[in-house]
Nucleic acid binder design. Sequence first.
RNA 1: UGUCCGAUGGUGUAAUGGUAGCACAACAGUUUUUGGUUCUGUUUGUCUAGGUUCGAGCCCUGGUCGGACAACCA
Length: 560
Amino acid sequence: MSSEANEVPEKSLNFLEEIIDNDLKAGKHKTILTRFPPEPNGYLHIGHASSICLNFGLAKRFGGGTNLRFDDTNPATEETEYVNSIKADVRWLGFEWTNEFYASDYFPQLYAFAEKLIQDGLAYVDDSRSEDIAAQKGTPTQAGHRNQFAERTVEENLHLFREMRDGKYQDGEKVLRAKIDMTSSNMLMRDPILYRIKHVPHHRTGSQWCIYPMYDFAHGQSDSIENITHSICTLEFALHRELYDWFIHKLGIFPSHQYEFARRNLTYTVMSKRKLLQLVNEKHVSGWDDPRMPTISGMRRRGYTPEAIRDFADRIGVGKRDNIVDVGVLEFCVREHLNKIALRRMVVFDPLKVVITNFPEGKTESLPSENNPEDPDGGTRPLPFSREILIEKEDFMELAPKKFFRLAPGQMVRLKSAYIIRCDEVLKNAEGEITELHCHYFPDSRSGEDTSGLKVQGTLHWVDAASAVPCEVREYDRLFSVENPSSEEGDFKGYINPDSLKIIKNAMAEPAISGTGEGQHFQFLRKGYFCSDRDSSPEHLVFNRTVTLKDTWAKEQKKA
RNA sequence: UGUCCGAUGGUGUAAUGGUAGCACAACAGUUUUUGGUUCUGUUUGUCUAGGUUCGAGCCCUGGUCGGACAACCA
């Protein structure tokens, strides 16, 4: 039973696993409980995904549980819409929470905690204006000082705090502060604000309350109320730990502990809510779920899979130093998963007509092609083949360089799952542009039963001209053209990649593409991984490029 | 001029006083009816100066560099 849960499968532990392992071995806890505590004021992004994987993953590994808790202590910014999208995103990532809680569930309890502090002489009501409180706090290098309100008696404070709760005062007229130490080197300990007045309806408690607890007065106590054993947050909260512990100690409640890790940054994107909001508001992207956004909803629409994202979170691990992870790692994880599950289809983006001169007019053959060479049980789909086919314009060159394994006058290629062809003639229009190729095929080179003895270096994707289905393809690329837009000089928006979206209106796909539902994953042969977009309909198919294939040929060309 | 974090190849992460390992990237080769995939190999690293020790990436001291902290946000 528990001995099995406490046993660690692999030998190397990260620093959080080590803490938990030690706590369990020392008998500090019988089982662990973590929590994922988003504020419902926006959409989750890849950084949250790492945190989700961390919290749920840790609990799973050590046989514990994870609560989903909405940190909804600021009614001005929070909405039910966000609660729902967050729940959907966590579920989509593949996690189930032990309990669904809200900090707002604890408002009565938190209020009682505040009264207890007042009664113990550890909190007071301050009538100062916001600016004065800030000024009296001093600076990181200069001590702050108290004002006359700190001298109020317990009775007076209790009375005033109850009046605050009862709505006797306007926003900003009074606050409740903890009485700690105005000279602390930790600014957060300089009599922090516990409660402020906000006559704003709350998405869950409505107008029941007009005073709301601050983060510091809500978070640790919420952890404690839920018996969270390991409260894991990002590094910028490290200074808050002293306060976190102070409240728990003064209140004498369950000793949850806070541990901090470094948030993960990704190259070629931005992660702050403020910046993402700007991208949306200023229409640099189509919305929060634009496939270029690092939001979970954006990545889902782009075609990333939960498996890939979880794998990514595992691979990058967790640490305590500043970092910026190469987005290439994420792309690797996506390719690795999609390679296993994506159906292969052929789509020609920029068609060039090829006439197979020795193929009978009016005849159509049906050639089987495997749905996924990585999946032995994947089966095949039929590919129509007739006298006129389409190939990619860039797969033909009149004057081919030595390593060009594609089509050129007199050169042979294999058409994937079909025949070997040789190019005999190049037809051009008045402007000298290539309009059509005449080739002949080798009937005994049919895929799977090739007795021709011919050897070719290149294999091309193609579609049958008569049966091809037009579709729209959206080729997404990185949103920014520099690794770390936030660290560059000037406005980060000056570094937006102008070519992050290229729309191909009339790509031609093999007929097996139709009838596919939203979110279906494909590999368009030699092109990349794609998925059908939510804008797609049977009349107008739309595909998003999730990620390109690795392209060593392109890399070689770039070098030359 | 304070307090708190942190520093291992290009990137991320291990090594818990005893052979600096893994992954991505890069490079070379292998396989391949996708210039995809597979498989193999190669290159590249402990911020610095001292100290403790038989032995230091790890412990101690000083320095350097980077980050966080002065919202009635979370």
